[in-house]
């Protein structure tokens, strides 16, 4: 850093280090469509072009059919799911999240496929009362210009009734 007028902060001491910001995703060639859809507040999941299985996270082979050319495409999903577990994060190892604690993370099984599980924040707040099987729906956090991160919010039981929610 060069010292100069631009660094002056009005105080006599050195400027306070800026509060670290939340880490943002660095999309790559494969994941770019996912983050582009998220920016439009659409949740997508990679789907194998050979066997139609949803895959989290996608990489170079399909865990279901074994294809080495799975042609994963990010397809919109309902965003509905059920809570399989949760934790309230009160101390984060990511400095950019230190201003956010406490916050709730939920392990969500998406409605589209058994064991299709993703992890995101529950935006209802850290004191929310939860139970295994609680229905949730996707929500989005706009964290930077053009960057939105999928999260969840508690939802009403689906139209088919709570009896249809996996226990």
């Amino acid at each position: 850093m060069t010292a100069g007028p631009a660094a002056a902060s009005g105080s006599s001491g050195p400027a306070a280090a800026p509060e670290p910001t939340r880490p943002v995703p660095a999309p790559d060639e494969r994941s770019a469509p996912y983050w582009a859809a998220a920016a439009r507040h659409v949740l997508t999941v990679a789907r194998c072009a050979r066997c139609s299985t949803y895959v989290v996270p996608p990489d170079h082979t399909c865990p279901h059919c074994g294809s080495t050319d799975p042609g994963f495409a990010f397809e919109p999903v309902s965003g509905r799911g059920t809570v399989r577990s949760w934790t309230v994060v009160r101390q984060s190892f990511l400095p950019g999240f230190r201003g956010e604690v406490p916050f709730l993370l939920v392990d969500v099984e998406l409605a589209e496929q058994p064991e299709l599980r993703v992890i995101g924040r529950l935006l209802d707040g850290p004191d929310t009362t939860l139970r295994i099987g609680a229905p949730v729906a996707v929500a989005f956090e706009d964290v930077a210009d053009g960057v939105s991160v999928p999260a969840f919010a508690l939802a009403e039981p689906s139209a088919t009734g709570p009896g249809e929610v996996r226990s």
């Binding site: 670290p20 880490p23 995703p25 990511l94 991160v149």
Partner: peptide, 18 residues
């Protein structure tokens, strides 16, 4: 102190799961 999350971590770190 990562500011961006690439590779496999892009699916979890932006959410604060780390």
């Amino acid at each position: 102190p990562m500011r961006t999350a690439g590779g496999a971590q892009q699916w979890t770190v932006p959410q604060g799961f780390f």
